[in-house]
Amino acid sequence: MPYLEKNKTDFIFTLYPGGGFNTKDESSLQKLKKVLTSPFFKGVIVTQEFTRNFIIEKLDCPQNKIHYIFGGIIPQNSIDIKRERVYKKEDSLNICFCSAKYMAQGLDKGYDIFIDVAKMLLKNNYNVKFSVIGGFDQDEIPLGEYSKNFIFYGYKKYNELSEIFLEQDIIISPNRPFVLNDGSFDGFPLGAVVEAALNGVIPILTDELQQNSHFTDNEMIIIKPEAEAIFHSIEGLIKNEKIVHLMSNNIQSKSKKIYSHENQLNQRLKILDIYI
């Protein structure tokens, strides 16, 4: 801001969820208010409707300066990926979880729910296997007799994720807003879920802030952050391999359209053209 204002430089920026954007932190909100009221502020790109509504209602940002573009700029590693795995009932259904660790048991990202779901499926003798990518290991939440059904990959570079996701059928992402701290929230879907979807992995995920504006129930399953409900959703998929195959194709196709540079960057260039 000091640089931009000193040089009298007009600017547009993107306000993503996460990072320092906290809806209840006064320091964060004062910084954001200063940016939005700068005489050189010309526009803000928001990627979630929750963000748009918040800066209108709480920070009095003029609506004509807000540009809503669902999604974000992501690496294009998996845009042209061809998925070969096709789930058959005689095979195991492969289910994964992917997240960095920000708090014990990953309560903000719903890691505890993921483990509860896994135990319920295994207790009912379903042929399922689980993979965990990110900051969690087998000691985070004790797995007991079920530990043999899990693979823990630890943290992976972004370009290493596709190889794992291509062998997965479902990614569970039951994240909860305002758990890490009072005003924090995630975008929809999480970045890890987007990368999984680009590889044809079916997301089962939460949307407590109702941020979804593009995906249908033929592409992903949006559900409350409750283990039993997720368990029953997966039961239905286990018994219907055709639905698994259809949803896998659907989510991969839709994600490629939404998150391609052609779509995401072109929308931004049109906005920049207005001001340039």
Rank of each mutant, 00 (worst) to 15 (best):
L161R: 07
I170N: 02
E163L: 10
Y155N: 13
N124L: 01
K148G: 10
I204W: 02
A104L: 14
F178V: 09
L205Y: 08
N218V: 13
K129D: 11
S184W: 11
L198V: 15
S213M: 09
N199D: 11
F114L: 02
F188N: 09
I171V: 11
I170W: 05
Y158G: 15
P177M: 00
G144N: 03
D108L: 06
L166A: 11
F178E: 10
D112M: 03
G191C: 01
F152Q: 07
E140L: 03
S131Y: 15
Y155K: 00
G106W: 00
A192Q: 13
L190H: 13
F136D: 13
V179G: 11
D169K: 02
D116R: 02
I113T: 10
G191A: 00
V128N: 03
L107Q: 12
I172L: 08
L198H: 11
L190K: 15
L161S: 12
K109C: 04
Q211G: 08
D186F: 12
F114E: 09
P174R: 12
F130V: 01
Q168K: 04
I170E: 07
P177G: 02
I151H: 10
N159P: 05
L121A: 08
F165A: 06
D139N: 15
F152N: 08
E160V: 00
F215W: 01
D169R: 02
I204V: 03
